[in-house]
Nucleic acid binder design. Structure first.
Lengths: 136, 136
DNA sequence: TTGTACTGTAATTAAAAATATTACAGTATG
DNA sequence: CATACTGTAATATTTTTAATTACAGTACAA
């Protein structure tokens, strides 16, 4: 993060929940998000890989939820979607000849991991069902 | 985030703590981080604005901590450094004609705010002094 | 009082990352 | 067999991030 993967995935899941039972195609979903259908299909591929959605190919195809919305919590969605560190570390290697530079990556990673766990713990208290229920 | 502002700020603060008493100039700091000195000066400008460091202009100038490292917690550093949402939201406006699209930004913002608060709460348990002590 | 070594900051350029677009093979449906 | 999808790769565009250049302002010290 913070690209918009998490937001897009939550948007997709919310839509699938709201139109439950139906197969929604990538163009329809992209129309709601206002983004490119290929981006949606990529995002769906990832959600599928993590067992959150199911897709059907061919004419009349599309996607649906693969689990009960009450059983999808946002901590697991976060983990499914995440593809890089929450906090970017400087893309260049810090100076190995400097006492601080030499060790900081290791210490920052540990700090970030713990902070991220706190974040995930919080996200895990929400389910898709809770979230969906807020839309009226 | 997740640009590297937070990482760079923590690196700067750690260095200033480790070489306490001295004025460190932006070139020296940049050498440890392995980035451009101007980037360091911009980051210092922000830390200064938030009362975390003090800088001295002119020959022999540089920066020092403005507070005791035990009184600098990483929650406040995070808040000082943060300049955009933890999670990017799709840069296009979602479709206002869609029930989900119309309301999702509001609901996501609330969700993200609460998750971010959990993150900050965790970060607030660490001080610069604690962190610095890990370097040997 | 002048040269030197810094900061502060703006403007520009370059590099990297995110997203959109195009394209098309594969698959299910009728 | 025509149609309407998915899956995915390749490319192009846009946006964001970071580096670079430039220079005025400030402090020190000879």
């Amino acid at each position: 993060m913070s690209d918009s993967h998490f937001s897009i995935s939550l948007h997709i899941l919310t839509l699938l929940d709201h139109e439950k039972g139906q197969l929604l195609n990538s163009e329809y979903i992209a129309g709601s998000i206002n983004c490119n259908p290929v981006l949606v299909r990529k995002e769906l591929a990832n959600l599928r890989k993590h067992g959150l959605v199911h897709s059907k190919e061919g004419k009349g195809g599309g996607s649906t939820l693969a689990k009960n919305p009450a059983d999808i919590n946002f901590g697991e969605v976060y983990k499914a979607v995440k593809q890089k560190s929450l906090f970017g570390e400087s893309k260049n290697e810090p100076n190995p000849d400097c006492l601080v530079g030499k060790q900081i990556s290791k210490h920052l990673s540990k700090l970030y991991d713990e902070a991220e766990n706190a974040l995930i713990k919080n996200l895990s208290t929400y389910t898709l069902a809770d979230f969906s229920a807020k839309f009226d």
